[in-house]
Amino acid sequence: MHIQSVRRYLLQSNHNSHVKRIIVGLLVLAVFGFASKLIFAPATFGDLGHYRAKAILEEANLEPRLMTNESCLTCHQHEKRKHLKGTHKTVSCEFCHGAYFDHILDDKKIGTLDVKKGEEIRVLCLRCHNKEIQARPTDKIKTVALPQHLEEKRVRTTHTCDQCHYVHAPLEYVNLAKKMMRIKDEPEKEPCP
């Protein structure tokens, strides 16, 4: 009986009862919307600006995948002795070989990195040293044209670069050979900074 009377009261229609119901409905909607805006706003949003402040920390906490030459040369002592003395000392180990963390993870070796050989070496070397690409500043890098360079040095044109130039210290053995053979021409200059 009681419920019936409440229902009758709710459903009775004055000339403006529908307007009242609409206004109540809109207010409920607004309160609900405002509440969900507060509830669902992510934590730390707005602490530093209109963004999730924690996102800065999440970005900062990402793990690097590439390391530095020093990290590689900690183990690779032979390369360390050669690489740091030669003209390639500024070349990144990981550029030619791949990412550190594809090789070492938590002090354990997890994979073997690429060592370029043969024709791949030529492609890799020419990536920087190709004279045909004229956009390279000449004071920053020594460039050669192939096969003219090979012909000039009187070696077979099938030679790959690393047959004369040790990749980690490209001029070391060349200059040594010249010294031994008492070839008089100037020792090659180092263009790198």
Binding site: E63, P64, M67, T68, E70, S71, T74, F101, I104, L105, D106, D107
Partner: peptide, 8 residues
């Protein structure tokens, strides 16, 4: 950083 790495 992940432990044990020599990083300058």
């Amino acid at each position: 950083l992940r432990s044990g790495i020599e990083v300058p």
